[in-house]
């Protein structure tokens, strides 16, 4: 790929207007002759994805993930701002860009059910300007790569959901695109199918230098698959960081102390560097949940002072453990009303 960024969104904004006649307003449950509704789907978003990167777009339903992906593939025009794929502006080079982009959209019937996977790949290959021996070789190679070679002559309607999803990915890859856009690629799949798809996407990014943009609700998918994650909420990018960094922001802060009895929390809260102290309620053993700042020096000093204080109080310290942060916790904290400032 010749440009620094495989995909770039510059100040993208998209508002959808819906008009209904003789309808019931969902907000106040009143009947209306005419009702116009406005949804700000994407609110001045800036994103850039490098080649070889697996980029995750995380957000709840209606956050603007699918709209962003559709704008990257030219299926939706932005109201303002520009989308670039491999350095080319999407709107003015849409048909050229479609040769560089493979898209798997969520919940759509990407493949034709009465045809076999091989016939599907031949059909969509022709539709996407791939032909002849290149098409045949690529189709067979993809089916082998994704693990569908033994099903290549079975009608799609007889395949499982996971196998259909794998075929959808093969169809997206038939043009050998440099950018793969995957909208909810593992939704509704079993553990094995999900794992297999994740492995393939990782392999493509690592070994073939392709760039993948993945939207998902599934935090474990994002955590395992993505090298960088943007969290979108109400059309706005709340944060965009490498996955490890995003987890680290929260991982180093929370410690669980297991004790022989619950101490008074007020003196502990007075220790410099301690952000919060909560007794562990509803647990078998008494204990405390102490939150420290992200700064390592301050945190170490505060942690030492906490242990010293507990010892001075005559408490028996049974264990100290750092709470493992999951992307789900990060996501919930980031998209809650009290957004963490990063």
């Amino acid at each position: 790929m010749s440009h620094e960024y495989a995909v770039e969104l510059r100040d993208i904004d998209k508002v959808f207007h819906t008009r209904h006649f003789f309808t019931r307003d969902e907000d106040d449950n009143r009947r209306r002759i005419y009702h116009k509704k406005t949804v700000h789907a994407v609110d001045h978003v800036d994103l850039a994805v490098k080649p070889g990167e697996v980029f995750g777009l995380l957000g709840r339903n209606g956050a603007g993930k699918t709209t962003s992906v559709k704008m990257m593939s030219g299926l939706i025009k932005p109201d303002s701002g520009e989308v670039f794929v491999d350095g080319m502006e999407v709107e003015s080079n849409r048909l050229k860009i479609l040769r560089k982009v493979g898209v798997v959209l969520e919940g759509t019937r990407t493949c034709i059910w009465p045809l076999t996977p091989l016939e599907n790949l031949a059909y969509f290959g022709n539709l996407r300007d791939v032909r002849g021996s290149v098409l045949r070789t690529r189709a067979e190679g993809l089916l082998e790569f994704i693990g569908l070679k033994d099903k290549m002559n079975v009608q799609v309607r007889r395949l499982s959901r996971g196998q259909k999803q794998k075929l959808a990915i093969c169809i997206a890859l038939i043009t050998d695109p440099q950018v793969i856009l995957l909208d909810e690629p593992t939704t509704g799949l079993d553990v094995q199918s999900s794992r297999s798809i994740k492995d393939k996407v990782t392999e493509m990014a690592r070994n073939q230098g392709k760039c993948a943009v993945v939207t998902t609700h599934d935090m474990s998918v994002a955590q395992e698959l993505c090298t960088r994650i943007a969290i979108i909420d109400a059309g706005k990018v709340v944060t965009c960081k490498p996955t490890d960094e995003l987890l680290d922001v929260f991982r180093e802060q929370r410690y669980e102390f297991r004790l022989d009895r619950t101490p008074d929390v007020a003196p502990l809260k007075a220790i410099p560097g301690v952000n919060n102290v909560e007794p562990l309620n509803g647990q078998e053993e008494p204990g405390l949940l102490v939150t420290y700042p992200a700064d390592q020096e301050l945190r170490s000093a505060a942690l030492y002072s906490t242990i010293q204080h507990l010892s001075k109080e005559g408490l028996v310290l049974r264990s100290v453990s750092q709470l493992q942060q999951t992307l789900e916790n990060v996501f919930l904290q980031m998209t809650s009303d009290k957004k963490a400032s990063l």
């Binding site: 479609l98 040769r99 759509t108 996407r128």
Partner: peptide, 9 residues
């Protein structure tokens, strides 16, 4: 949408 993704238009 799949047909729209065809570079032939």
């Amino acid at each position: 949408e799949q047909v729209c993704l065809s570079p032939h238009g």
